[in-house]
Design a protein around this nucleic acid. Structure first.
Length: 848
RNA sequence: GCGCCCGUGGCGGAAUGGUAGACGCUGCGGACUUAAAAUCCGUUGACCUUAGGUCGUGGGGGUUCAAGUCCCCCCGGGCGCACCA
């Protein structure tokens, strides 16, 4: 009979059993259909946060459900173990990054394991080990061979105090996030991956990713930024050089009032290098960093070269400027300005008193002062284009330029090549050797992997590898003379770009992964993670997959067939009477129902539920939750209420409600008779009702999980439980129905509350574990009820409900509906014009 | 500025165009208890004095026998992108 449910003991017991039996360890099996479910792997910060709990619970529900549905499910876990925090810990506490990282992995693994996830831990790896990153070095060299990797000079954010490159997101208000020093723009030799070669494929394949959120596909599409237009040349009066520009609005050529070059354009210095004020102008352009925000705030400034440019079709000269808002990385690094139809050009023209010539006129004409017109209209003041619509004019002018050989129609992308060099220690070494005579050479195959030196010092700013006394010294593989190693390491997004393949064959010493294995497991059917990686990681991983494919490593085009992006976890915020943020654990309700501080007893101000953050202290510690309420309650709560794609509000009452349910399920289900009764020929009506509920729930829960509507699945299960709890057995049929319901219930709560489910399953005398138990079979014939209760409307308003036999005719329904007292009252003196009967749904009496 | 998403009880949220508010949280009432906690039972959209009715899915219009759901306009909130030529 029901005894008190010992959560801690029971949960530990079942985790041990799963572990000992290797319940979640899988291998390729061609007889079974595979299903690969993957959650974004964590950075080993040392402690899991609630976001992890949500992420991995969602994945585990899918994994356990798909396993029960008969799939061969791969559900692995690993560690995204390279990255800055380890170096910061080394600087702050003098602890070696490797030691710090490995210790963090140990504690985080224990925390994750206490969630009871159905993970194949035998496949675990950490990306910071040579066993993992050696394959990256091989891939990189193969990329180099194939022209996918290359080296070039580029502009970067440079922190003058730390002597290191900063990513755009590490620049805050033009200053380094750690040092606070104003960031400089610097030209640096960096390694790049030619993601732009894949721009078209990356864009086109987005259409096929129909199990991705529309939002993410759109973000990637915007990021890739394909645009079509005309690339054509202007002559410079009195010089031989030509200026090539790209435009998406070739139709506005006759509205041109200037040509502008990027300050980084090779022609800029040629045309203006000897002019007064040029050096100062360039310096001004370089100040202020390269972050989007910094660029946006910058005022448009230009430098008049004094030269004029012409185009054969235009027949007049326009001035040539150098302007700070022209990007060298996009298009050709030069433009022609049409102030009337481009806001930036108009701002620039107004500042330098350049002419404004409208050439596209909407109905009724326009006057341009401060706002450019970019809408539709007919061309004017444009000679042979006059009267044409914008699109026709574009085509026409491209045709003319191609005819006179000054230009051609082309496509440009916003996407830029991926700069992968980082001046860091804690990353994968880039396997390159620099020789004064032979240049940059790949590290020979037999010298791979290039491993990080263990004796490393962080006492100087800048790249520790650069400062290492001996590590970078080596000999040229070609001429054997002394040479230097590349001291930069890969961007840590490198590791996460291919880890999905590595799980398929995590111990392979020769290859990233064996093709036979990746061909079996890949692609990932269901990927789950935060939306913050919509363009970064998710785009890199897609690109990497294609690059690996083209280098013969894999036969896969897209890594993730299905993607689910979960919402954030939020919590109320609390402030004490001085406005200081306090932790949720420091606020308690007093007898009057007001929140007060646990120590001072003074009132606490409650703020809105917002994303958990350390600065606002509105965080909860998953370990504490797992210890107090158990994994099942934590999992249940995190799946309840909120749809997974939306933000989830963490509340104490919510987790307590979940905990209550766990205990109640245990006491109620434990108390049921465990014996398996024989199936009788006849069932009482209450038994039929229960069986219908059972099979309705089997259908609904399956559909909900497939649709990621975990909150609905939980609601169905609770409803089902309420039905079981209210049931009183009176005959053999009832016993059978209850037995059927109980076993189905236990099987279906398994994805959500696996420990409790196993415990109840065992208590019912089963010798096999629930992890081997298939999803309960659905009997569709039991879904149909003998009677249906439907609403009766009069002019669309519900006035009564009637209960009819399942196969009742329309006439019966109509008669019964009209016989209802409430219906008659609503009809009153009015004339019945029409009666609409939708069988099994509604009766609507139209009067008036 | 452009694009996308979302507005339903005190709260989180359900609802193939067909009985709005499933399921839960909170609150309230009761049982049990010396008492409390736990547990159990009942109740919980607003308004009208009850039978019963009226109003209710951000606001306004429309389509329909029937609209939270479809269409148009507006308001509010959130997210993404943004000198990309």
């Amino acid at each position: 009979m029901s005894e008190r449910y010992n959560i801690r003991e029971t949960e530990t017991l079942w985790r041990k059993r799963w572990d000992e039996s290797g319940a979640f360890n899988v291998k390729e099996d061609n007889a079974k259909q595979k299903y690969y479910v993957l959650e974004m792997f964590p950075y080993p910060s040392g402690r899991i946060h609630v976001g992890h709990v949500r992420n991995y619970t969602l994945g585990d529900v899918v994994a356990r459900y798909k396993t029960a549905k008969g799939f061969n499910v791969l559900h692995p876990m690993g560690w995204d173990a390279f990255g800055l925090p380890a170096e910061n810990a080394a600087i702050e506490r003098g602890e070696h990054p490797a030691k710090w990282t490995l210790a963090n992995i140990e504690s985080m693994r224990a925390q994750l394991q206490s969630m009871g996830l159905s993970i194949d831990w035998s496949r675990e790896f950490a990306t910071c080990t040579p066993e993992y990153y050696r394959h990256e070095q091989r891939m990189f060299l193969k990329f180099l061979e194939k022209g996918i990797a290359y080296r070039k000079e580029s502009m970067v954010n440079w922190d003058p105090v730390d002597h290191t490159v900063l990513a755009n997101e590490q620049v805050i208000d033009g200053c380094g996030w750690r040092t606070g020093a104003p960031v400089e723009r610097r030209k640096l030799n960096q390694w790049f991956l030619k993601i732009t070669d894949y721009a078209d494929e990356l864009l086109e394949c987005l259409e096929k990713l129909d199990r991705w959120p529309e939002k993410v596909r759109l973000m990637q599409s915007n990021w890739i930024g394909k645009s079509q237009g005309l690339q054509f040349k202007w002559s410079i009066t009195g010089r031989d050089e030509q200026i090539e520009v790209f435009t998406t609005r070739p139709d506005t050529l006759f509205g041109a009032s200037f040509v502008a070059l990027s300050p980084d354009h090779p022609l800029a210095a040629k045309l203006a290098g000897d002019k007064d004020g040029f050096a100062a102008f360039i310096k001004q352009c370089q100040a202020g960093g390269t972050s989007e925000a910094a660029i946006e705030q910058a005022e448009k400034i230009g430098f008049d070269t004094g030269y004029k440019a012409t185009h054969p079709l235009l027949g007049r000269e326009v001035p040539v400027y150098i302007a700070n808002f022209i990007l060298m990385d996009y298009g050709t690094g030069a433009i022609f300005g049409v102030p009337a139809h481009d806001q930036r050009d108009l701002d620039f023209a107004n500042k330098y008193a350049l002419s404004v010539r409208p050439v596209v006129l909407p109905e009724g004409g326009i006057e341009i002062t401060k706002e450019a017109y970019s809408g539709p209209g007919k061309l004017a003041n444009s000679e042979f284009l006059d009267g044409l619509e914008v699109e026709t004019a574009k085509a026409e002018i491209i045709r003319r330029c191609e005819e006179n050989n000054t230009g051609f129609g082309t496509t440009q992308f916003r996407l830029r090549d991926w700069g992968i060099s980082r001046q860091r220690y804690w990353g994968c070494p880039i396997p390159i050797i620099y020789c004064d005579s032979c240049g940059a050479l790949p590290v020979p195959e037999d010298q791979l992997p290039v491993t990080l030196p263990e004796d490393i010092s962080f006492d100087k700013p800048g790249n520790p590898l650069e400062h290492h006394p001996t590590w970078k010294n080596t000999n040229c593989p070609k001429c054997s003379k002394p040479a230097r190693r590349e001291t930069d390491t890969f961007d840590t997004f490198f590791e996460s770009s291919w880890y999905q393949f590595r799980y398929c064959d995590p111990k392979n010493e020769v290859l990233p992964a064996d093709k036979a294995k990746t061909n079996y497991w890949m692609p990932v059917e269901q990927y789950i993670g935060g939306v913050e990686h919509a363009v970064l990681h998710l785009l890199y991983a897609r690109f990497f997959t294609k690059a690996m494919r083209d280098c013969g490593f894999v036969d896969c085009d897209e890594p993730f067939l299905g993607l689910f992006t979960q919402g954030m976890v939020t919590h109320e915020t609390y402030q004490d009477e001085n406005g200081k943020w306090i932790y949720p654990t420091e606020a308690v309700k007093n007898e009057q129902g007001q929140y007060v501080h646990t120590e001072t007893g003074k009132p606490v101000k409650i703020g809105p539920s917002i994303k958990m953050s350390k600065s606002k202290k509105n965080v909860i510690d998953p370990e504490e939750i797992l210890n107090t309420y158990g994994a099942d309650a934590a999992r249940l709560f995190i799946l309840s209420d909120s749809p997974p794609e939306r933000d989830l509000e963490w509340t104490e009452s919510g987790i307590e409600g979940a905990w209550r349910f766990v205990n109640k399920v245990h006491s109620v289900i434990s108390a049921l008779d465990a014996a398996t009764p024989a199936k009788p020929d006849k069932f009482s009506s209450q038994a039929q009702d229960l069986r219908r509920l059972t099979h309705k729930t089997i259908k609904a829960v399956g559909e909900d999980i497939e649709a990621f509507a975990m909150n609905k699945a939980v609601a169905r299960l609770r409803e089902f439980f309420n039905g079981i709890n209210a049931f009183h057995t009176e005959d053999d049929g009832d016993a059978f129905a209850l037995h059927e319901a109980a076993e189905a219930f236990i099987t279906m709560i398994n994805p959500v509350m696996p420990h409790l489910a196993e415990q109840l399953w065992a208590q019912r005398g089963h010798k096999t574990m629930l992890v081997e138990q298939p999803w309960p079979p659905l009997d569709e014939t039991l879904l149909v009820a003998d009677t249906v209760t439907i609403g009766v409307q009069v002019n669309g308003k519900v006035r009564a409900t009637i209960t009819l036999p399942a196969g009742a005719s329309q006439k019966e329904a109509e008669e019964k509906a009209l016989a209802e007292e409430g219906v008659q009252r609503a009809i009153g003196e009015q004339q019945v014009r029409k009666v609409i009967v939708v069988p099994g749904r509604i009766v609507n009496v139209v009067v008036g």
